[in-house]
Write a protein that binds this DNA or RNA. Structure first.
Lengths: 338, 338
DNA sequence: CGTTAGCACTCGGCGTGGTGGAGTGCTAAC
DNA sequence: GTTAGCACTCCACCACGCCGAGTGCTAACG
């Protein structure tokens, strides 16, 4: 791959991502290669086709990048895009309003990112992270019924009604809560289940360990859910005018589990990741590209955030803006969780 | 509107909702009116057009119902659909898994309803409901910083980090939490703000009333959000093959606020409500119909649940299934909130 | 040997025109 | 009031032909 071929590939990618029209040798010569004739470009183009970087929709059409072409572009030719400072400010401001809880931050992140990327944004909380008990509380709601409040790592709260002994009053309940706290604090769901029961609990509270573990599991599952925003951007992409294709992608987006698995697999790796077309293991996403990165709260990896779009997506711009939003999300969480 | 006209209108509506093809006089005569000739049907059809119940896409085409036609159908001709008992069981079972918190129940409701109605389901929590404090908790995270956990009516939890006096330990914090609970329990955001400050609080906790009120407001706003599911069903409806129309609807669905306002306005009225095409004040929904009802937890009106689809939606079936899901949702919440 | 002009060729997009059929409205008769 | 008959309308569909963008190939040039 000599330097001129790279220039041409870059030109084809950038032209095609803008116009969504196969680009021909004349157009390239006129726009990017005034020093060369279209015939020369043609020779190069046909070699790029032979090498698998470009393809022709039909014999007398221009060229469009293949997945492999995009891959090369992303790996070696990606321009360093700079994000407009005004946009930067705008993003920071957007997060200011979301200062109360994690979910709100993630929703702002998705909204922001979908607008900036002009595609679908996906955000997930910590997947397969083990929630650990930070604090437990028992509140008497009425005789015989109490509310169990759990706070786990990540400050996520879980609440659940439980039945208790009729005769217990709030003071007694608080006493138990204190002992349960001492016993279970810092434990994961599995550890809570394995731990010995707290002695001397009232009838109805013996099974509380089960409830606590269950709550921790719930919190873990909930944070693994993938929220998405910006489907409205997808429908105006020409490649998704076909309802069948559009539906395939929507299936995946709305069945949060599938996408969650995809993101979870990639989460451990740091830095920005790009999955192009067929590189996706999920069949429904074979015509899509994913641009993903992780974000962190403090110095701890937290979740995955990314963009789903056609393979023709503007990788440079999207990557730059994703990075911006990812950082802002991390910062917002850091402020929130301290 | 004599009885025969009604039969014909009913036939046109039910044929058109199935086939999405304008229905002609021959088809009607053959399928529904063996005792009449197509010429007679033609006469009736043309009168129904004159009266505004039917329309012709073009001069030599069959008839399709107008919004007014659907309105009449819904008001006077809606058949009492019965829901298959197996489906009934299936819905009940679906809710069993969602026994931990309100949001989970609503998400199950949306998923269920979108599948059963084969359209988009929308669900909202109590709009403009006032959240009242049920329980407050203060958890020491590290010296100088504590987590405030609020549980409000509906068992929704809100958490927020606050700065506190460095020297306080968890026991002391718990003591304050207890006093704050006694003071503020059962109050709304406004009442908390109006209430006198709790005396003798540590530095940094004086403003806690503000935080509590703010949390309650957040919880109220959050519950007013509209969740939706089933966009994948929308894209295969022929009337939304046009990306422009599809996008318009998606704009509304993803901008939860707009839809929230619509639903909030209608919430007070009990029973099933149908908004057909132009009856929607929101311009983007002019080609859609909404079938809505409210659901209740215990004997208290709680939120709105409904279906968004093309005006051609199967009102009878959708209404029956909506009712089913609405009841099941209410029951699930009742169990949850007791 | 890389580059270029020239040229024949290919093929999709688009507008044209013709046809079939579904469906209508009207009229006259029952 | 109902119906058969009939002329008429108009869309959906297809075939055809043309235009033009774009190609590959060849031969010539520096």
């Amino acid at each position: 791959m000599d330097q001129r071929k790279e220039r041409i590939l870059r030109a084809v990618v950038s032209d095609y991502t803008e116009t969504v029209v196969p680009v021909g040798s004349h157009a390239l010569a006129a726009r990017y290669f005034l020093e060369l004739s279209s015939a020369t470009i043609r020779n190069e183009l046909s070699e790029l086709v032979d090498d698998g970087f470009l393809a022709q929709p039909h014999a007398s059409a221009g060229r469009i990048p293949t997945d492999q072409g995009y891959r090369y572009f992303v790996d070696f030719l990606l321009p360093q895009e700079v994000v407009d400072p005004q946009l930067r400010r705008h993003v920071r401001q957007g997060f200011e309003a979301a200062d109360h809880d994690v979910e709100a931050v993630l929703e702002v992140a998705a909204a922001m990112l979908s607008r900036l990327s002009e595609n679908v944004a996906v955000v997930t909380g910590p997947a397969n992270a083990t929630s650990r008990l930070r604090h437990l509380d028992l509140v008497l709601i009425r005789p015989g019924q109490a509310l169990m409040v759990e706070v786990a790592t990540g400050n996520a709260a879980f609440q659940r009604l439980i039945e208790i002994d009729l005769l217990v009053d709030q003071d007694e309940l608080s006493g138990w809560a204190k002992r349960l706290n001492e016993m279970y604090r810092g434990m994961s769901a599995e550890e809570v289940e394995a731990a010995p029961m707290v002695a001397g609990l009232a009838p109805g509270l013996q099974a509380l360990g089960q409830d606590i573990a269950r709550g921790l599991r719930q919190l873990a599952t909930r944070s693994a859910l993938v929220i998405h925003d910006g489907v409205r951007n997808l429908v105006r992409q020409p490649e998704f005018e076909d309802p069948v294709r559009l539906r395939a992608v929507l299936e995946v987006l709305e069945a949060q589990r599938i996408l969650g698995d995809v993101l979870a697999q990639l989460a451990p790796q740091a830095g920005m990741q790009v999955l192009i077309g067929h590189e996706n293991t999920v069949a429904e996403l074979r015509e899509c590209s994913l641009v993903l990165t992780s974000y962190q709260a403090g110095d701890q990896l937290w979740g995955t955030i990314g963009v789903v779009g056609p393979t023709r997506i503007r990788y440079g711009q999207v990557a730059a803006r994703l990075q911006l939003v990812s950082r802002a999300t991390g910062d917002a969480l850091t402020r929130l969780l301290a």
